[in-house]
Amino acid sequence: MSTELLIFIFFSLLLVFSALKVIIVNNSVKAAIFLVLSFFCSAVLWLLMNAEFLSIILILVYVGAVMVLFLFVVMMLDINLSNIKEKFVNYLPLGLFIFLVIALLLILFFDNQFSDVDRNIVTEINILNDNNTMNLGYLLFTEYIIAFEIAGIILLLGIISSITLTQQKNNDNKYQAPHDQINVTKSDRLKIIKDEEFRK
């Protein structure tokens, strides 16, 4: 047994274990951390396929940025999952049934559809005679330039729409207005009332 296979078996088992833990574990913070672990394991699997750029991106973007933000959100929210857990047993038979059907289909699918499983498409694409990252960059900016630009436009849309949705001023929001606060005069704040009754 080669070292590569050993590493593959170890990390794929760890991946399955951590992915299961994500849905089983009760504490949502722990679930998020197990998700980080499963991302890490899949990054190692990418690395085994010589796709080093994708694996590093997975760790940088998902583990470094997305999951950290996600953890912040999870820590700030106070969600009680016990209500959802109660119904878990009720749905178990149906869930198991669907799981088995899809698993059977997938086994059938992978059994006779892929003839040449030993092909490694990542190492096959070698245009520049250089590493995977160079090839990927070259392809992105030549063959897939239209798709790449459209992805950029989708990000621009994301920025514009999120700003539009959050920048609407609600009347019940409380915010400071420094200009008005500085320019108050004595008469705005203080009202002198002559109380005739009191004098008597």
Binding site: I146, A147, I150, I154, S161, L165
Partner: peptide, 18 residues
């Protein structure tokens, strides 16, 4: 191309969500 088709669908849906 399936990739460009998918990106077009995403662009359309994202604008509809907003």
């Amino acid at each position: 191309d399936l990739l460009i088709l998918y990106l077009g669908i995403e662009l359309l849906s994202l604008s509809l969500y907003s």
